[in-house]
Amino acid sequence: MAVSTEADIRGFSSADENRVHLNSPIDESKLLRKIDLRVVPILFMTYIVAFLDRVNISNALTLGLPAELNLEGNQPNVALTIFFVPYIIFEIPSNIVMKKLSPRIWLSACIISFGIIMIGQGFVRSYGGLLTARFFLGLAEAGIFPGGFYLISFWYEKAEAQKRFTVYWSSTICAGAFGGLLASAIANMDGIRGLSSWRWVFILEGIVTVLVGFVALLCVTDFPREAKWLSPEEKEFILQKTGNNESHTVPVVANDMLAFLSQPRQWFAATIFPMD
C-alpha cells in the first residue's frame, strides 16, 4: 500500500511537484516578482493606516483629549481597552465573510469604514461618544490583520509566505516610527476651525485612511483563481505550487473550525501574540 506524502495530500504527487517547478514554461521568478508587486505593497499600506488609527489615541491623550472630555480615573484606559473587545471576537468571522465575498471588496469596505469612524471620533463630545467610536473602530479593524495573512497564504508556498508575512508585519514598525512625528506636526493645528489638535489627529488620519480604502478597492487582489491579471497558465501554476485550490465559492463548514481549534500550535500562537 502506497504511503501518502504531504504533496499527495495537497492534491498532486512529488513527481508532479517537480514537474511544476522544473518543467513548467512559466518563469517562476518573474511570476513571483509579479505577485509581490500586486499583493504585498497594498496590504502593507492597509495595515499601516489600521495600526495608526488604532494607536493614535495615545497621541491624542497627550494633546488635551482627557481635559476636554472630562475623563477621570481609569476612563482613558477603558477607552484604550474597549477597542480590543470586538477586535478579538470578530477576527475569525471577518475572514469567513471575506472568503464569501472577495478580499478586494471586504478589505476595502473595512478600511473605508474605520476611516469614517476615525473621522467621527474627531467630533466626539463625551466619554460615552469616545467609547462608542473606539468600539466600532475595533469592529471595523478586526478583519485587516488576519485578512492580510489569510490572503498572502493563498499566493505563496510556506517558505515564501513567511518572508511576506514578515514584510506585512513590519508595517507596524513604520506606523510606530511615523505616527508620533505626524501627531507632533498636527499639534501645530490647534485651534484651526475651532478644533483642538487632538481632534485634527483623528480627522486627518481618518481622511487618509478613507483614501487608502478607495485605493485598496482598485489594487487589492483576490484569490489566485479569481485574479484577472493572471493568465490561465499562471493561475494553474500557482494553484498547483501552493496546493491552495480554494476560492470564495468554497464554503467554510463547522469541521474546518473544529480542525483549526484542535491544533495546539494555534492556541500557542494565540497565547504569545499579545506578548509582542
Results as ranks from 00 to 15, higher is better:
Ser14Val: 01
Gln266Gly: 13
Trp169Leu: 11
Gly206Val: 05
Ile117Met: 00
Glu246Asp: 15
Gly122Trp: 13
Phe273His: 15
Ser196Thr: 01
Trp169Phe: 12
Glu68Asn: 08
Trp169Glu: 02
Ile192Gly: 14
Glu205His: 06
Gly176Pro: 10
Ser94Pro: 14
Cys110Asn: 09
Ser4Gly: 09
Val201Ser: 12
Ile173Thr: 10
Lys235Met: 03
Leu239Tyr: 05
Pro41Phe: 03
Gly179Asn: 07
Glu28Arg: 14
Gly64Asp: 04
Leu52Gln: 10
Asp16Gln: 06
Gly120Asp: 02
Leu181Thr: 08
Gly11Glu: 06
Val55Met: 15
Lys30Leu: 15
Phe136Gln: 01
Gln266Ala: 12
Ala140Leu: 08
Thr46Ala: 12
Phe154Asn: 07
Arg33Pro: 00
Ser4Thr: 09
Val252Lys: 04
Lys228Phe: 11
Asn77Ile: 01
Asp53Tyr: 01
Gly143Gln: 12
Asp16Thr: 03
Leu22Cys: 07
Glu68Tyr: 01
Leu258Gln: 13
Leu52Trp: 08
Gln240Pro: 04
Ser4Gln: 15
Thr5Gln: 03
Arg125His: 04
Leu101Asn: 07
Glu246Tyr: 05
Ile105Tyr: 12
Trp267Glu: 15
Ala161Leu: 00
Thr62His: 08
Ile48Pro: 10
Met98Asn: 05
Phe51Ser: 03
Asp276Pro: 11
Glu72Trp: 07
Gly64Lys: 05
Ser153Tyr: 08
Lys30Val: 14
Ala109Gln: 11
Val167His: 07
Gly179Val: 11
Gly129Phe: 04
Ile116Leu: 14
Ala177Asp: 15
Leu151Lys: 11
Met45Thr: 11
Phe273Asp: 13
Val252Ser: 13
Ala259Tyr: 14
Ile35Glu: 06
Val253Trp: 12
Phe223Ser: 03
Ala175Glu: 05
Val20Thr: 12
Gln121Lys: 10
Leu43Glu: 10
Ala183Ile: 04
